[in-house]
């Protein structure tokens, strides 16, 4: 394998992993708070949409991101109100939100941009890259020149590890997922903790959506998240919501995405290559379970 090929794979992996990582970090928060968040797909999509719209209108990627994050947070707030306070089933609400947003973004595009289901324009400002040319091949290709959100997302992974395992909020969050009655008994409202987790999750999914529509590409097209929210969910469940593991698994999924493009040739049909990320998520989960099965002897 020549170095150029590995570099290509690496850079594609990182780019594909970033939105998954951001979303799964968000979902890890709600996971610890005891909610399996299936609405991430929708949260990413609404953010992708509003990021593009506001980036286009204001000419600033920053405002685009803000708009996307706010939109995603608002939907997340809605989700949390239903799930944590009205005690509705989280799968029902999650899938309903996904369908709502998939239809709503299309509907809004039709109404706002006169019958388009993909919107691109040179006026859409892109998220900045950390553009530094040091001349060193390794530095330039492996460490530098990624989206600033990529660096941010890795920082967030470590920040979340800190928040979840070291801070008071993190303690309450974990208790909230493991034994909510203990929180109630301590006089803390479970719903409020879940609400905060959801809002933060919304923010992170918002970043994920913005990264997808303002960096990976600079456009919005219908259902452009393409199942990444669910891949993120798989990443969370495989990693048990531990942020550093989430980071690792997300990068792994990014790699599988890159390989799914790379492996296609005359012998391997594209469909089999494109199956790879999904098959691997099952396989990885399987390996984790085989390992834990060895640890506990019980059947």
């Amino acid at each position: 394998m020549d170095i150029e090929l590995i570099t290509t794979l690496f850079r594609t992996s990182i780019r594909m992993a970033t939105p998954i990582l951001l979303a799964s970090l968000g979902g890890a928060l709600t996971y610890h708070a005891g909610i399996i968040n299936v609405a991430m797909e929708g949260l990413m999509l609404i953010s992708a949409f509003f990021s593009v719209v506001f980036s286009y209108l204001t000419g600033s990627a920053f405002y685009g991101i803000i708009a996307g994050v706010v939109a995603s947070m608002l939907i997340s707030l809605l989700y949390s109100v239903f799930v944590s306070f009205l005690k509705a089933n989280n799968f029902a609400i999650g899938f309903a939100i996904n369908i709502l947003i998939s239809s709503l973004t299309l509907f809004l595009m039709r109404v706002m941009f006169q019958g388009k289901n993909a919107f691109n324009s040179p006026d859409i400002a892109s998220i900045m890259e950390l553009k530094v040319k040091t001349g060193n091949y390794f530095l330039d290709n492996y460490l530098l020149n990624f989206s600033i959100l990529t660096y941010l997302s890795i920082a967030i992974a470590f920040l979340l590890a800190y928040i979840i395992y070291k801070t008071s909020f993190g303690l309450r969050l974990r208790v909230c997922g493991e034994m909510p009655q203990a929180l109630t008994a301590a006089g803390i409202k479970v719903g409020v903790i879940q609400l905060w987790a959801s809002i933060l999750c919304g923010g992170l999914c918002g970043l994920a959506g913005a990264q997808l529509s303002l960096y990976n590409v600079r456009m919005f097209s219908r259902d452009m998240t393409g199942g990444r929210g669910f891949v993120a969910l798989a990443a969370i469940l495989i990693s048990g919501g531990k942020p550093k593991r989430v980071l690792f698994i997300s990068l792994l999924f990014g790699l599988f995405d890159a390989l799914s493009v790379k492996l296609q040739n005359e012998k391997i049909a594209p469909q089999f290559a494109l199956m790879l990320p999904y098959i691997m998520s099952v396989v990885v989960l399987l390996l984790f379970h085989l390992k834990t099965r060895k640890q506990y002897g019980k059947a």
Binding site: L171, R174, V175, E178, M179, Q181, A182, A185
Partner: peptide, 9 residues
């Protein structure tokens, strides 16, 4: 009567 202790902490 039923403990409300969190096992993993």
């Amino acid at each position: 009567q039923h403990f409300k202790l969190v096992q993993s902490i």
